[in-house]
């Protein structure tokens, strides 16, 4: 796409450059026909410098289980436009679930944790990319991928650790007012979690769904 735009700009400006290099008042020896510009059937929306940043907040639910926290999810994010379709996003998210104990030692003295889907606490910082797809009117679907660093805690079991989840998700954005967007999103997370109490490395998996509002910054 970038090369298509660059080529169009080059074709359009090249005759002007030639004309500018001739002596003042001189007539061009050969009249150069003005080429018609190449038309891109679906040009990227031109980035507007005035709306290249957004702030958003989402509220929803995260489903965990085992040693993956689940519960109410609150997510804050900052987005920066990289191109017409792609945005860079950084965010923090908190998962607030029950603190009930669910770990025990089996008869071989190995620790087993069987937390419910809505247990535990998580705090994550993440960074990723969001790409928009063609939508209809004010509706625009998008996909996102990211990687994060997440603190995991199950207070009832004194179980703590750090996870490195990779996330992938999809959502839809709706323009509802000037500089106000409503979003709904679902994402899957997965990665290793490094935990205390001898559990060492365990899988950290989860599903999050949420909805919220994003604001275009002035």
């Amino acid at each position: 796409m970038f090369w298509s735009i660059a080529l169009s700009i080059g074709i359009l400006t090249f005759p002007s450059v030639l004309l500018a290099q001739e002596a003042p008042g001189a007539q061009p020896a050969v009249e150069i026909p003005t080429p018609s510009p190449a038309i891109d059937p679906e040009p990227d929306p031109e980035p507007d410098p005035s709306d290249s940043q957004e702030l958003g907040v989402l509220v929803g639910a995260a489903i965990g289980g085992g040693v993956s926290p689940g519960g109410m999810a609150v997510d804050g994010r900052y987005l920066y436009r990289l191109s017409g379709l792609d945005w860079f996003e950084v965010g923090t998210s908190f998962t607030l679930g029950s603190g009930d104990a669910a770990c025990f030692r089996d008869r071989q003295s190995d620790l087993v944790c069987q937390h419910g889907l809505l247990d535990g606490f998580g705090a994550e910082v993440s960074a990723g990319l969001r790409r928009y797809f063609a939508g209809q009117q004010q509706f625009r679907p998008y996909a996102r991928v990211g990687v994060g660093l997440k603190l995991v805690s199950f207070s009832g079991d004194e179980l703590r650790g750090v996870a490195i989840p990779v996330s992938a998700g999809a959502g839809i954005r709706v323009d509802v007012a000037n500089r106000v967007l409503v979003v709904a999103e679902a994402s899957l997370r997965g990665g290793p979690a490094f935990l205390n109490r001898g559990l060492e490395v365990e899988p950290n998996l989860g599903l999050a769904i949420g909805a919220g509002v994003e604001f275009t910054l002035e």
Binding site: I63, G64, G65, G66, V67, S68, A101, A102, C103, F104, R105, D106, R107, S109, V112, Q114, H115, G116, L117, E202, P203, N204, L205, G206
Partner: peptide
């Protein structure tokens, strides 16, 4: 395991059968 289910066929749990040193283990 990640979603709170067990692969083990053991019936051991915090309510019956787990090893313990104190009540907080159960």
């Amino acid at each position: 395991l990640a979603f709170g289910l067990s692969c083990s066929s053991s019936d051991v749990s915090r309510s019956l059968g787990a090893q313990c040193d104190s009540r907080s283990d159960c």
